[in-house]
């Protein structure tokens, strides 16, 4: 039982670290602000959840587990609110998103022009 818990927690921690690193690479690699928000979303949701669940499995103390769950819930409630506020501020200040850079332009062109002029 104990080894199973240790194995599970190690897996969760390693997977969370991998997700974190991927998000960090994504925030450097993606071309514009709006796409970078998706990379940050990865590190805020599943990576944080995986690392915190891995920590929960390490500790038998009930109060510590409840505190970790509270941190997890707070992260899950706060991160969409913060990223929504950030995205809306960027839209209101007319930061143009890159749109459809890799799609063949035949049927996409009109709608893309429409959207970018509107936003």
């Amino acid at each position: 039982m104990d080894t199973v818990l240790t194995l599970l927690s190690s897996f969760c921690l390693l997977f969370g670290s991998f997700l974190c690193l991927s998000g960090g690479v994504g925030i450097l690699r993606f071309p514009d602000f709006y796409t970078r928000m998706h990379a940050v979303g990865v590190t805020d949701t599943l990576a944080a959840a995986m690392i915190l669940i891995g920590l929960m499995l390490q500790n038998p103390d009930l109060l510590v587990i409840i505190k970790l769950m509270m941190i997890l819930l707070m992260t899950l409630f706060i991160s969409p609110a913060a990223s929504h506020a950030l995205g809306q501020a960027a839209v209101l200040n007319k930061l143009q998103p890159l749109i459809n850079m890799n799609i063949n332009p035949l049927e996409e062109d009109t709608s893309a022009g429409d959207k970018s002029s509107k936003s």
């Binding site: 979303g41 990223s83 929504h84 995205g87 960027a90």
Partner: peptide, 11 residues
């Protein structure tokens, strides 16, 4: 929508 990465609600 915002919690699932890949889509972000802007307004």
């Amino acid at each position: 929508i915002t919690l699932t990465p890949g889509t972000v609600a802007l307004g």
